[in-house]
Amino acid sequence: MLLVALGALVAYFAARAPVFLSSQELANILADFCSLILLGVGETFVIASGGIDLSVGSATSFSGVIGAFAMKALLDGHQNEAVVLAVGVAVCAGVGLGIGLVNAALINWARLVPFVATLAMLGAAAGMAIVLSNGEPVGLDPRAISYTTAKLGPFSYPSLVVIAVVAVAWLTLHFTRYGRYTFAIGSNEFAARAAGINVRRHVVSVYALSGVLAGLTGMFVYMRLGSGAPTAGLNDELQAIAAVVIGGASLYGGVARMSGTVLGTLIINTVTSGLIISNIQANWDQVAVALLIGLAATMQALRPGRRR
């Protein structure tokens, strides 16, 4: 179903601008996909567990800025490029992890609903990213940019890492006990607890995962731009949630498909790039995504037997 929608979109844009089917355009869409999909993957786990994480966009910005400060210090000290990138990945992931753990603490122990807890984090992380960076991109790393160019067909090396992470996440959500517990908690938290599942610990891990993936997104966007931008992930939480919902997930929890999230993300990326390529007024981008969400939500509601 989603595949049909994606195919139709690609056909439409290709008809308007044949260059849309080029390998170069595939590389463009792939770079965009990799900037969003990990947020969608994390959000898929969170939404499957019956929660929501509004902080992933600003976690992307904040971790990218902090990671950029760390990498800038190393670059200024003429550190080996591999060391710089490794430290960047670790710092970004670590900052994301911290954000996820604070979210989980607010939800589990301060008893805030996920919407409020992660909304507070959204504001805090976005504000800190701007204040700490003075509103300017941090660092200047053209070597990082060179790594994000297409090397194997349309794939860059970082994009292969991202795709591998998505594959592992897909296996984890749908084939492992971890994924099963995630769905069980989202489907009926009491039933999960009564079945002996440590719900609190699992919720901590889900938000931590979402945070780490946002951190890695921060690193990916850093590499794309060659700097840590304080607005790198601005509004991306909404795009990620949109992708998950378009992919067939229920915001009430218990229902989500990783393949759906992947296709939902691709659809959003295709619309964004397709509108530019076919030179349609860019403001339609938001309208198009909104329509897709509305359509997905309607299909969700009409699907029999999937309501609580």
Binding site: R177, R180, F183, A184, G186, S187, N188, F190, A191, A192, A194, A195, G196, I197, G254, V255, R306, R308
Partner: peptide
């Protein structure tokens, strides 16, 4: 057996029977 609330509705029968004991 809890009154009305012991199963996860979105999971399969098998997943529910083995929930927590996969």
């Amino acid at each position: 057996l809890y009154q009305d609330t012991g199963l996860a509705p979105h999971l399969t029968i098998g997943a529910n029977v083995f929930l927590g004991r996969e």
